[in-house]
C-alpha cells in the first residue's frame, strides 16, 4: 500500500470538514464537520502506524484515544447546544452574535432574547423585537436588571 493513498484521502476529508465548519449555519452540522476532521486525523494516524511499524503501536492507540475524546466532545457539545436551544430557541450560528457590538441597523434584537432568563420548559418562540425582555414577568425584568448591574 502506497502511503500516498490514505494521506490524500485524509487530506481531502480534512478540507471537506473545514468547508463544513465554515459554511454551515446549524450548530449540529458544524459538529458533524468537526467529526469529519477528526476522522481525517485518525486515518493519518493508522496509515503512519502501519507504515512505520511502531513497536508501541502509537498510531493505533492514539486513534483509539482520539475516538474516545471525540465521543466526550460530542456529548458535551450536544449538551451545550441543548442548553443554548433551551435559552434562545435557536441553534443558528449566524444569529448567536452576543459577543459582537450591536450594529447600527439592528436595534438590539440579537441581544434581547438572552436577557430574559427563560427557565424550565420551553416557552414558545423567543421574543425577537426590541424590548422583548420587558414583556416577561416583572421578576424576570428585575433579575435581569440586577444581573446587568453585577456585570457592569
Amino acid at each position: 500500500m502506497h502511503v500516498v493513498y490514505p494521506a490524500v484521502v485524509s487530506a481531502l476529508l480534512f478540507s471537506i470538514g473545514v468547508y463544513g465548519v465554515l459554511a454551515r449555519r446549524n450548530t449540529i452540522l458544524v459538529l458533524m464537520s468537526v467529526e469529519l476532521m477528526l476522522n481525517a486525523v485518525n486515518l493519518n494516524l493508522v496509515a503512519f502506524d502501519v507504515w512505520l511499524r511502531d513497536r508501541l503501536h502509537g498510531g493505533q492507540v492514539l486513534t483509539l484515544f482520539v475516538i474516545v475524546i471525540a465521543a466526550a466532545e460530542v456529548g458535551l457539545g450536544l449538551a451545550i447546544i441543548l442548553a443554548l436551544y433551551r435559552n434562545r430557541q435557536t441553534v443558528d450560528l449566524d444569529r448567536l452574535r452576543d459577543l459582537a457590538e450591536p450594529t447600527g441597523t439592528g436595534d438590539g434584537a440579537a441581544r434581547d432574547p438572552v436577557r430574559g432568563p427563560l427557565r424550565g420548559p420551553l416557552r414558545g418562540p423567543a421574543p425577537t423585537g426590541s424590548g422583548g425582555a420587558l414583556t416577561d414577568s416583572g421578576q424576570a425584568v428585575s433579575e435581569s436588571a440586577t444581573r446587568s448591574g453585577e456585570t457592569s
Binding site: 500500500m1 449540529i28 493505533q60 483509539l64 475516538i67 460530542v74 450536544l78 447546544i81 436551544y85
Partner: peptide
C-alpha cells in the same frame, strides 16, 4: 484494509453506533 482491525470495529461501535445516534438525538431535541 490497512490491517487495523480493532480500530475498525471501535470505529463502527463508537462512531456509527454512539456518535451518530447522539447527533440524531440532538437534531430531534432542537
Amino acid at each position: 484494509v490497512l490491517t487495523a482491525e480493532f480500530v475498525a470495529w471501535v470505529q463502527v461501535l463508537i462512531y456509527v453506533g454512539a456518535i451518530v445516534a447522539l447527533l440524531l438525538f440532538g437534531i430531534m431535541l432542537t
